[in-house]
Computed example of a mutant assay.
Amino acid sequence: MTKKLYYEDPYIQTFSAKITKQEENYVVLSETAFYPTGGGQPHDGGTINRIDVTNVEIIDGEIRHFLEENLPSNIEFVECSIIWKRRFDHMQQHTGQHILSAAFDNLFSMKTVSFHLGKDSSTIDIDISEISDHQLKEVEALSNQIILQNNPIETKWVTEEELALYKLRKPTAVKEDIRLVIIPNFDYNACGGTHPKRTGEVGLIKILQIEKQKRLIRVEFICGERVLTHLDRKQKILVNLKNSLSAPEEKLGDAVKALLDNGKTLEKEVSNLKDLLLQYEAKDLISSTKETIITSIFQNRSIQELQKLAKFITVESTGTICILISENEDRSQIVAAKGEAVKQSMKELIVKVLPLINGKGGGNDIIAQGGGENMISSKKLLEKSVAYVTS
């Protein structure tokens, strides 16, 4: 059984066709070599009469070619061109998926339930919950062995009745015009996607990583030219790391760990020093006023710094209320805290003053905070806050 369809010859790069339907944003052709989005594979790119094709989809039983701009209304025949680099990349990834899925199935009876061909990498979802590194290595090794053998990739049109003659990797819901893609003695699969003539054209398969997806395992992989692109990118990163860390490749992990550990130690030391400075600042604010309400306005201080400073003040001076404000560009932040000998609620104070700056915040009776717009000056906000406390 033979039947000519749009995907019959994946090596077509240019072809002529007759327009059978023309709408405002798409055309339908008498025959086409453009692969439409489907089966996890993106559409082909290219041009029709030198106008870029932006999408190709099967809608209502017809293959619609969406264009960047409209064709002239009186045109009958068009010249079409497919971006071969994109097509061949998709052929490598799609066929690599066939090989990888068949390897999982043949070695461990692990079934592929979905496939996605992405811009940088592709994924398959395997119907299992656990898989070992050893199993992944076996699958990858068998896949690349099939590629190295340069086995033929055959396509065959069969009827529903003839399907029983083939050991399909997965059942098909298609009842007519069934196209089988066959790697003899390895994989039999109903598929309408694009594939090269032989497995060797896939080049190479590399599993990048796995990720648990509920009850499935998602396997990320790359094939062909993408492996070289990936390797080139990783090599540049490695060289830069080696030069930056002055360490050989095999010692990079140790060098990075030492750097991170040192960074954490320094961060802790810096945090301790900042706290020490805030404690000195708190004592200075306490000693510089004889009042039971300590206030101050700062520039570009974080809410976390204000909170720590307020806590240091009220721990040191238990009969004190502390109100601190920071002006940060077009926003105001306010923190109010009290010592254990004070009865007023700081949460109530913040709730009263935040509407003045269209602000939001929260806290408790001991310490509360919030932020909002610079609708009034910090000085005025401070005066209003003090007035609420003293009234």
Rank of each mutant, 00 (worst) to 15 (best):
E250R: 08
I325G: 00
V389T: 05
K119Q: 13
P248L: 09
W157Y: 14
L165H: 11
K274C: 05
N150F: 06
N70T: 09
Q369L: 07
Q41K: 10
E23T: 07
S378E: 14
G203Y: 04
P152I: 05
V342P: 01
E31C: 05
N328M: 12
E31S: 13
F115H: 07
I376Q: 08
I325P: 00
Q93K: 05
R233S: 15
Q41S: 10
H98A: 06
V27D: 06
K167E: 12
N272W: 06
I297Y: 03
V239T: 15
N240C: 11
D177R: 09
Q93S: 09
K197N: 06
E249I: 15
E211C: 10
S122P: 04
I75L: 10
I128R: 09
E329R: 13
E225G: 11
E69H: 14
G193E: 00
K343Y: 12
I334V: 14
V342H: 00
F221Y: 15
Q235D: 12
D365S: 15
F186S: 05
E79M: 10
S317Y: 00
M91E: 11
R179S: 09
C191W: 03
I128Q: 08
D177P: 02
H65Y: 10
D44T: 06
L168C: 10
L324T: 01
H98M: 10
Q369K: 12
I323L: 12
L252K: 00
L100Q: 02
S288H: 13
P42F: 03
G339C: 07
P72L: 06
E220Q: 14
I205H: 00
W84A: 10
G370F: 04
I334R: 02
Q307D: 11
K206G: 02
E162P: 05
I147M: 09
T123Y: 03
I210H: 06
F104E: 00
I321T: 08
I325Y: 04
M375V: 10
E340P: 01
L260D: 09
S385Y: 07
A33P: 02
E130W: 01
Q135H: 05
I153L: 03
G371P: 01
V335Y: 02
A255Y: 03
K234D: 15
H90N: 15
S378H: 08
E154Q: 13
I286D: 00
N106K: 15
Q22Y: 03
T320M: 07
G40S: 08
L259G: 06
S132I: 10
N358H: 13
I367L: 12
M346A: 05
E327R: 11
I350K: 02
F298L: 07
H116Y: 11
K4D: 11
L163V: 13
A336E: 02
P196N: 14
K4I: 15
G45Y: 05
G45I: 02
D105E: 09
E267N: 15
R169A: 06
Y11A: 12
L324Q: 01
V28G: 04
P72N: 07
F221A: 01
E76Q: 13
S302L: 08
G363Q: 02
N150D: 15
